[in-house]
């Protein structure tokens, strides 16, 4: 049976990648992208709808398009990318509207896939070495991104309980590294000097960019419900990550976190990363592996994949953006009777 999928955050990195990946699967009959801006990558056959960031028109879109699957990639997992207020609007209110639309009477939605983060576990001295999916946090929520993600997590749990007819899959991804994605960690590692907290050398677990796409595609196609940690095998000390990336660590004072605030700005150190650079985080990934997913890269492999593409970029310069979304052009390709091939093949 042909599937009808709605992808949120279609104008963002992950939404764009997921739509491109879904387009290669012929069983995905209808692919619909929602976003607040314009797509930065070309879509072959997916339709794009522009919406506000809290997705208040979600209900109408779901009713009109009768989608059976919603792939929720629009979750902010990095507090330096958007203002605090927008973070709450996107992660909490956006998720709430999405779930309300999916849970409305007579809804066609049977499966919701959410891209979340292992940030919901926090990072503290009292943490266990490895978090299982049902291990509770040991520390109270200390920053806006964790607060928003934990709150969204609760909404999804409630939804799954109230709507047994709809499968909910939540993937909690570890820190992502890869050839294309830019995060505070990758920005720091790209520079000649990179911050660390003096006297701390935490163990970090990564997941490669392509494995993120493959994991989301895996659960979207198979329809497996549940809560899963997604992180590659192995953990590396931050010092080793820096050495592999050829950057020099600059230790910041472990005391008086107030004093490192200007430095935090200089180095792109959002609060959740400051905690991570002290205590690190490890998650158990057996539950997701049991669904039949195999990773292409280990944690160290993800670091290597990142640094190899960075070396290439350094030696060739960044490629100019070769695609600009033009609404009229995209509409023409999709709906004009003159277009005979390409879009629907």
């Amino acid at each position: 049976m042909s599937r009808r999928v709605l992808v949120t955050g279609a104008d963002t990195f992950w939404g764009g990648r997921m739509i491109q990946a879904l387009e290669t699967d012929p069983s995905m009959g209808v692919i619909l992208g929602m976003g607040t801006g314009t797509p930065s990558v070309p879509f072959e056959r997916a339709e794009f709808v522009r919406a506000d960031q809290t997705y208040s028109i979600m209900n109408r879109i779901v009713k009109a398009t009768q989608v059976d699957t919603i792939l929720h990639t629009f979750m902010i997992t990095n507090s330096s990318s958007v203002p605090r207020r927008a973070m709450h609007e996107i992660n909490v209110i956006g998720t709430m509207n999405l779930l309300a639309a999916a849970g409305a009477a007579g809804s066609s939605v049977r499966h919701i896939v959410v891209k979340s983060s292992t940030l919901v576990y926090g990072s503290a001295a009292s943490d266990p070495n490895t978090f299982l999916e049902d291990t509770p946090r040991t520390s109270s929520v200390r920053n806006s991104v964790e607060r928003a993600l934990v709150e969204a997590d609760g909404l999804m749990r409630d939804f799954a309980e109230d709507n047994p007819g709809t499968r909910v899959t939540v993937l909690r991804f570890a820190n992502v590294l890869g050839p294309h994605l830019t995060t505070p960690i990758s920005r720091n590692l790209s520079r000649p000097v990179c911050p660390s907290i003096f006297g701390f050398d935490p163990l970090l677990q990564f997941v490669e960019e392509d494995d993120v796409v493959r994991a989301l595609l895996h659960v979207t196609q198979s329809g497996i419900p549940g809560l899963f940690n997604v992180a590659a095998e192995g953990r590396l000390p931050w010092s080793e990550v820096a050495t592999i990336c050829g950057t020099r660590l600059v230790p910041l004072s472990p005391f008086s976190p107030l004093k490192i605030r200007p430095l935090a700005r200089l180095f792109d150190l959002p609060p959740e990363l400051q905690d991570l650079l002290r205590y690190g985080r490890g998650v158990d990934t057996r539950r997701f592996a049991a669904t039949g997913f195999t990773y292409k890269a280990t944690s160290a492999g993800a670091v290597q994949s990142f640094i190899r593409s960075l070396r290439l970029r350094r030696q060739t310069g960044r490629q100019p953006a070769s695609y600009t979304y033009e609404h009229d052009v995209e509409q023409f390709f999709r709906h004009s009777p003159s277009v005979v091939g390409g879009v629907e093949d």
Binding site: Q20, V41, N129, D210, R214, L236, T298
Partner: peptide
């Protein structure tokens, strides 16, 4: 594509292990 999907091309994984230390989990 600005973000090419190069998943089929196995450009990672078969490279030698980049680990430098023997720090365990």
């Amino acid at each position: 594509a600005i973000v090419p999907i190069r998943i089929a091309a196995d450009h990672i994984g078969d490279r030698e292990d980049p680990r430098l230390s023997d720090v365990d989990e």
